[in-house]
């Protein structure tokens, strides 16, 4: 008995490892490397409190004397050494990057999940139900698509800033960001899911289910949804990169994560002031981290698109 139960999942794992999908993954060094980079960055963001040598948000650990320490060089006054140097207030750049990445990743993932759930639901309903419901949803999508997502996000941010009392601005900023980026990004998902649903809905297996008398909800969830997910996966990956960049951009422009909860974009915004005065490390390292994150997610998405597109095989 125990023998049997252990072989079943194993063979499934073996099957997965033997699949063409995994094969194309192993055969693509770019995919493997970017997957490793993404995992490394995500893990170090998740475990930032354990990895970071300093807590940059604990005022007690800050020493203004440590300000502007260059990377790997002892500080003139205190003799402390920081891997990636410190900023104007003496905060360890490495630690702020770890914590900043946490904010960036959290906002990115949350925004994409939000956009994904909204987009899939609306796309599925629009595609399957059709009629005026579809017209309404897709017109709204069209109108929104005319406006670049970054602009939509900024508008939402601006409006939220007007609506939310000023003392709550900093606390709410992250959530406003998530909603702003998520709302500006659902259209992609909705369009793709609707398109795929229109194709699937005419397929005979859906007709077989309809003939049985299956309800709309069951058909959409059980039959259509699993079959439209692979393009969603590709878009979700690319959207994640876009969301991280959008968040960084908004924060850079000063309409995103507040200095009390800095994301990578906020750090770059702060660092920009010191670039011309020679403290290059304050801006360089957050920028490199942001680039590495966005690039490896993009590379994964690019590979995923090719791997999931049977016509390109």
């Amino acid at each position: 008995m125990s023998d049997q139960t252990s072989t079943a999942p194993q063979s499934r794992l073996a099957k997965a490892l033997d699949s063409d999908f995994f094969y194309s993954f192993r055969r693509s060094p770019v995919a493997v490397v970017s997957f490793i980079v993404v995992m490394l960055l995500v893990l170090s963001a998740v475990f930032a409190p354990l990895i970071a040598p300093y807590d940059p948000f604990d005022p007690g650990s800050l020493d203004l004397m440590n300000g502007f320490t260059a990377p790997m060089a002892p500080n003139d006054f205190t003799g402390d050494v920081f891997w990636l140097g410190t900023d104007d207030q003496g905060r360890d750049v490495f630690s702020t990057i770890l914590y900043g990445m946490r904010v960036s990743l959290f906002v990115g993932l949350a925004a994409v999940s939000f956009a994904m759930i909204l987009g899939i639901t609306l796309g599925l309903v629009a595609g399957y139900v059709g009629g005026w419901v579809e017209t309404l949803i897709m017109r709204a999508a069209d109108v929104q698509l005319t406006f670049p997502s970054i602009l939509v996000a900024m508008l939402i941010f601006g409006i939220a800033k007007g609506v939310i009392p000023i003392q709550h601005h900093d606390q709410m900023a992250i959530w406003v960001l998530i909603i702003a980026i998520g709302l500006s990004d659902w259209v992609q998902f909705a369009r793709v899911v609707r398109g795929a649903t229109l194709v699937e809905k005419d397929k005979e297996y859906v007709q077989a289910a309809r003939m049985m008398g299956r309800g709309r909800g069951i058909i959409m969830l059980r039959h259509i949804l699993p079959n439209v997910l692979s393009p969603v996966l590709v878009i979700a990956t690319i959207s994640l990169a876009l969301a991280i960049i959008a968040e960084a951009t908004l924060s850079f422009l000063g309409v995103g994560a507040p200095p009390t909860q800095p994301s990578l974009g906020t750090l770059i915004r702060i660092g920009q002031d010191f670039l011309f005065s020679g403290e290059w490390w304050i801006i360089l390292f957050p920028s490199v981290t942001l680039l590495a994150l966005a690039l490896s997610v993009n590379l994964l998405g690019d590979w995923l698109r090719d791997a999931l597109n049977p016509r390109l095989q």
């Binding site: 990169a241 951009t249 770059i268 670039l275 801006i283 680039l291 966005a294 993009n298």
Partner: peptide
């Protein structure tokens, strides 16, 4: 081009300023 897509516009700007102006 993938690097181009992954580089936020503001970073490109800062990079160019640093190179060609500073």
């Amino acid at each position: 081009s993938l690097i181009g897509v992954s580089l936020p516009t503001f970073l490109i700007g800062i990079l160019l300023i640093y190179l060609f102006s500073v």
